[in-house]
Design a protein around this nucleic acid. Structure first.
Lengths: 386, 386
DNA sequence: CTGTTAGCGCATTCAA
DNA sequence: TTGAATGCGCTAACAG
């Protein structure tokens, strides 16, 4: 418990167990480790706990400005004083105060992201990619979940702005007007993702939901499908879904689509299968989650995919390639979106490059869940059976 | 484009398109909106862009200290001056500088979380819950992805600490020793999650992986299963998996377990099915992802679940209840973990309450993928078929 | 190469 | 109830 190797761990533990150690100073932690014998010299550097740049200067026998230089532009300070300063830093266990630095520089190197949920892998993956790239560029990512509530979104945006984020990333185009206003008040860039709409009042980085929906439909019509059921999640508050549906409004090619709204989860997909009416040769789900749910239900009803009905999804979840049969779908450029968004904000912040709207392309992934429509028209009947 | 209602949006857009507007001041945004006619009075409050508390004071004809009070302790300032100050605030478009505030208070109200990945829903859900609760208590969440790399974890931890997080949350118990050291240097609490181990050098909040594994096994043995295959992800660097396996080392009840390591994805689960040797009556997957992958593969091989082989998972993913058959699994207390962790850090930070290790209970969810072992011993043969 | 002087924007003593 | 003064920790002038 008190062996040399674990002494730091022990300190941590003690610090956590004792409530009174709240803002416990680093000096407390290390003093008895290495500098107890020198405490006499470094007499007053435990003023309020943490050692400051001034304390380091005092110990090293130089001014605080010199210490600051040694830290930021080492080449502008002589080798020997630099050495003394380093020694003093080690001795005092000095650790720079990020707040003071941020205060004077006016920069926090922090970007805020507002996502509707973290339970949907689309958003998690986006954040994963976003964080990776932001991190590479020296930025931190603060995330806030909005639960798809516009008012909550504004609230959380305010909190993020109040903590000093230098950029704000949101999903989709539907937002409370205050969001724009607040971003403007704090003069931070605001970027909308999962959407491409160059005429929007803020820069968008994402895919064009209309194009994407059209791509999916084209895949099905190319296979000969004309009577197609379309399953989608709630339209309210989800502009992405709305766009996809709009794009499908006039399918052309003599195709006829019927829309089924449902909840955006596996159960919702399964439920649509039960509600299906009419002889559809294909079911297009505007989300893989729905498609997987539908697939399970179809199979448990004894329907064969794609022989009895073709099934197509949207997103390309990890699971989609492992279903039986593997799911045809449209792969959304989520990773790219994270990367491109990160680059855009950083470029703007670092060098002032304007943030331009950016269209990312989705890709139809044709797998085994979609097949040619049977030769005899109307050969596939109501999947509900009879 | 220049209608009154969209003027703010337009401003934002312009600001974003023009790189030179980088640190554009709030004053620029609002001045031409409402206070242009009063600019004469508020002569010098656009020093470096943003209006400060001093500017507000000047406009209101009071001192900065009074403005500060009006903002923080409104009751200590007379109604009339308060009104004047509020007017001045609106006029100048003053917005408090979070950095200065943080600087003097020494607080950032920011918690950092280090997760191995955001692609696994377990971690996303944890963060979702964590963020919700932190947010309720007035804290912000910074997330960093480590890709399960201990060195990267330390690196990112340093960045988080350097930006001023007041608490650090990590996953599991395996960490680079520097992590503990750094947390101690900055005197911030460090909490390990997804794990319960009261003897650890840092507080743990989570489930006991050994107990959980035992619960799962118990479910199977209670159904009569004795020869059981266990599929699990890579052990290297994953102490949770390690613990679960350890707990299964001595199964008792005359059970005999065989372990199959594979990749932690759907394909990995499917692959295990192909590698299975010997007459197992049950396949226990230490992760639902593996179980779902295995399920698809079993079905495409024509094996019936649970008639031919029982299948059990671990995690309780959203998808698990919708597979065919629905997957028996162990539901991990992920949401609770987020909540409890958030509360623990906040309580510590707000009132100094010590952070105590906390055991959360998992729950066996018995669904249709597990059934009693067939009466005739050895009735189920090699799932690979012959 | 280094020390001195000034703030950054705010909150918090102390007097008045 | 309010104002003046002081300091948080650090960086950025400007001298020396």
């Amino acid at each position: 418990m008190s062996s040399a190797v674990s002494i730091v761990n022990v300190d941590v533990y003690i610090a956590l167990k004792k409530g009174s150690f709240h803002r416990m100073s680093q000096a407390c932690f290390t003093s008895h480790l290495k500098i107890s014998q020198k405490m006499t010299k470094a007499s007053t550097f435990d003023r309020k706990g943490r050692a400051t740049i001034v304390d380091v200067g005092r110990v090293a026998g130089v001014s605080d400005a010199t210490v600051s230089r040694a830290l930021n532009k080492p080449e502008t300070v002589s080798a020997k004083t630099r050495a003394r300063i380093e020694a003093a830093i080690a001795e005092t266990g000095y650790v720079p105060n990020p707040l003071a630095k941020a205060m004077v520089s006016g920069r926090t190197y922090t970007i805020g992201a507002l996502v509707p949920t973290l339970n949907h892998s689309i958003f998690s993956k986006f954040l994963h990619a976003l964080e990776s790239d932001l991190s590479d560029q020296g930025y931190n990512l603060v995330v806030a979940v909005t639960d798809a509530d516009r008012d909550r979104e504004v609230e959380k945006a305010k909190k993020l702005l109040a903590m000093g984020v230098e950029g704000l990333i949101v999903s989709g185009l539907s937002h409370n007007a205050d969001l724009l206003r607040e971003a403007a008040r704090f003069a931070v860039p605001l970027i909308a993702t999962s959407y491409y709409e160059p005429s929007a009042p803020l820069p968008t980085i994402g895919y064009d939901n209309k194009i994407v929906a059209t791509q999916a439909l084209a895949h099905l019509t190319a296979l000969g499908h004309r009577r197609i059921a379309v399953a989608h999640g709630p339209v309210a508050g989800n502009d992405r879904t709305r766009s996809r549906i709009d794009a499908l409004a006039d399918p052309g090619e003599g195709a006829s689509l019927t829309f089924y709204e449902t909840t955006l989860d596996y159960a919702g997909g399964a439920a649509v299968v039960d509600r299906l009416e009419g002889p559809y040769s294909a079911l297009l789900c505007l989300s893989d989650v729905l498609a997987v749910g539908a697939l399970f239900q179809l199979r448990s009803l004894g329907k064969r995919v794609p022989e009895d009905i073709s099934l197509m999804g949207f997103d390309d979840l990890d699971a989609s390639q492992f279903t039986v049969p593997p799911l045809s779908t449209v792969r959304l450029p989520i990773q790219d979106m994270g990367r491109v968004t990160a680059r855009a904000v950083c470029d703007f912040l670092d060098s002032g490059s304007p943030i331009a709207p950016r269209l990312l392309e989705a890709q139809v992934i044709a797998r085994a869940s979609t097949g040619a429509v049977p030769l005899a028209p109307g050969a596939s009947d109501n999947p509900r059976g009879s």
